[in-house]
């Protein structure tokens, strides 16, 4: 059971990275694209818990750091998404109960994720990161991520739930209705 699940998560991550870099720039708001990869990490964390969430966050972040055309210091998205995965996994019992709760969770994760990425850039002296740019980008990213999260979080958690070997009364988004 474990190998297929890892394969599916890896495949979903690669598709998410490709969409985020290849397709979403055509749909950007003020240059900001939806963080689909972040939403995938949140979905894995909701289904599998904080440890798996953080581990998925590390892999997803490294993919995002290495995928062209990225040119920042490697490890910045990895750091941000490890925290996001842990955070989402830790509050999953509450966040999976209702749609508004998961929207709040995606908003919190988007805020934390993009902020950690931006702050690491400030700390490392990345020339493109300025406080003004951060204040502009982070709110737009949070709003866009919530919109995309509401669309894809439920199908993603369902897909991942289906890969679980046994399901013992886990509260699901579908069960909340």
């Amino acid at each position: 059971m474990r190998i297929p699940r890892l394969l599916v998560v890896a495949l979903v991550l690669v598709v998410a990275v490709a969409l985020q870099v290849g397709l979403f720039p055509h749909l950007s708001l003020a240059g900001v694209v939806p963080d689909l990869v972040l939403v995938v990490v949140v979905a894995v964390a909701l289904v599998r818990g904080p440890e798996s969430g953080a581990a998925t966050g590390l892999v997803a972040g490294l993919l995002l750091d290495a995928a062209p055309p990225a040119d920042h210091t490697l490890g910045r998205w990895a750091l941000a998404l490890v925290v996001v995965g842990w955070l989402a996994g830790s509050v999953r019992q509450d966040a999976r109960r209702s749609l508004p709760a998961s929207a709040v969770l995606v908003a919190a994760c988007a805020f934390v994720g993009t902020s950690i990425f931006a702050l690491s850039g400030l700390a490392l002296g990345d020339p493109g990161v300025s406080v003004a740019a951060v204040l502009l980008v982070v709110p737009v990213a949070v709003a866009y991520d919530v919109a995309v999260g509401l669309l894809v979080l439920r199908p993603l958690t369902r897909l991942l739930d289906g890969l679980e070997p046994r399901r013992r009364g886990l509260p699901t988004l579908a069960g909340a209705r």
Partner: peptide
């Protein structure tokens, strides 16, 4: 599978920081 050992978090954070 919802384990949450802080040791794992620290390990993963350190990995990311090491790459960085």
């Amino acid at each position: 599978d919802g384990r949450r050992s802080p040791r794992v978090l620290v390990l993963l954070l350190l990995t990311a920081l090491a790459v960085l």
